[in-house]
Design a protein around this nucleic acid. Structure first.
Lengths: 225, 225
DNA sequence: CCAAAAGTGTTGGGTCTACACCCATGT
DNA sequence: ACATGGGTGTAGACCCAACACTTTTGG
């Protein structure tokens, strides 16, 4: 029986959106299948797990295969957050034979370049996907949404340093609803999880205080093994 | 590569505790291993998944193997709640070779009789368990605790009909802390998820109104497939 | 009449939401 | 000067925790 991993890589469209998508749209990475079944269709990056290979090691390998030319910015192979989602193992989910797929959620602060045949798609309204991958994406988005409210996963969608407006934008993008600025700030600062860097970000407006999650801060993780 | 399922079956010790454990202690089912590795040790009920067998089907089969003589009351093979927990797949977690194990949480309203070699143990302070099964039990208890607060999983630990005191006792047992009766009642009734049966339970005290979860009510389920 | 569990309200403190204006900078 | 995003306080509604006594039944 084959064991595979499938990875839902989520990120947010950058401000300087060269693509057709508006800034801060949640994006999911998909690769074009070059083999049957579903040849020509989009699918989540994934692959079989090697005999001596750990599940997360397989995820990293798969991410490496989907990555593009090295570039400044976030690397696909080093997601800022990685967690196990669920395992899909219905007989018949892969027409070739029995494959049990362990799915993972990976978060990046911005979409890095990807390999030929891979592309970013709107995660909330993805194109048709092979196998049961549409369900897996839906599970990933649901998980991200719910974890935003009780954990620090947002960390995975931000760079090391960020302004409170950046953080709020992440929440608004994932939850797809506007939030009140004053209430948002009061609440997140009251949690006491953020640390001022002392630096400011400047632009053609009043400078903004930069914050970071203190080093060593761990997202509430479900069990991964 | 082998795929297995391991099941954390949780229930609560009955009032007429013939065992040494106090009533309403959370219990977990374990079976004694008769083969190496870990021969003689306690382990979670589990087993390999057949080639054409669905994951949940494998869980049911495993539960059947751990069940005892048919008796009135809950049947191990028909848990009131079943959900996927997480997948444990570190190379080396089974000394015999690579086994990826999909773990499940099953809930029962009371401990049914179990097969020879199987027994109920305190779930919050379990005995030594084979493989990484102690971690799996810990994950199950954590999941149950957190889901109690935002879902109707408690359903899985109750019979069809129950009093508000029964329900409160389940919460107190799982969370291991006392709750205020008036606040508890107000809150659960305000949710509007309970339905009066119209019947009452009688004892040597004032009769208590019986409630049920309306048929068709579904626990908020994570993805299972 | 006694024991046992069922049932029932109020109050104070904290938390959430809704809401509008001034500030610091770059151009 | 003006445009842009950064930053700030308050008032009402709501929610939560703490708290003790009366009721109904069986024995």
């Amino acid at each position: 029986m084959a064991v595979a991993v499938d990875v839902v890589v989520l990120t947010l469209a950058p401000d300087g959106g060269d693509d057709g998508v508006p800034p801060l749209t949640p994006l999911v990475l998909a690769v074009r299948r070059d083999r049957d079944p579903f040849a020509g269709n989009w699918a989540l990056p994934g692959g079989h797990v090697g005999l001596g290979e750990g599940l997360e090691a397989a995820v990293c390998r798969v991410l490496g295969e989907a990555g593009g030319q090295p570039a400044p910015g976030p690397r696909l192979t080093a997601p800022r957050h990685l967690e196990q989602l669920a395992t899909f193992g219905a007989p018949g989910r892969d027409p070739r034979g029995r494959v049990v797929s362990v799915s993972y959620l990976a978060l990046l602060p911005a979409p890095p370049p990807v390999a030929a045949g891979a592309a970013w798609h709107p995660a909330l309204d993805p194109p048709a996907l092979a196998f049961d991958h549409r369900d897996i994406v839906a599970a990933a988005v649901a998980r991200l949404r719910s974890k935003l409210t009780y954990s620090t996963v947002a960390y995975g969608l931000l760079g090391e340093e960020f302004t409170l407006s950046d953080l709020q934008a992440v929440y608004e993008a994932v939850q797809a609803r506007p939030l009140d600025k004053r209430n948002f700030r009061r609440k997140v600062l009251a949690l006491g999880l953020l640390e001022e860097t002392g630096e400011q970000r400047r632009g053609s407006h009043r400078p903004a205080q930069l914050y970071r999650f203190p080093p060593g801060l761990v997202v509430f993780d479900d069990v991964i093994a």
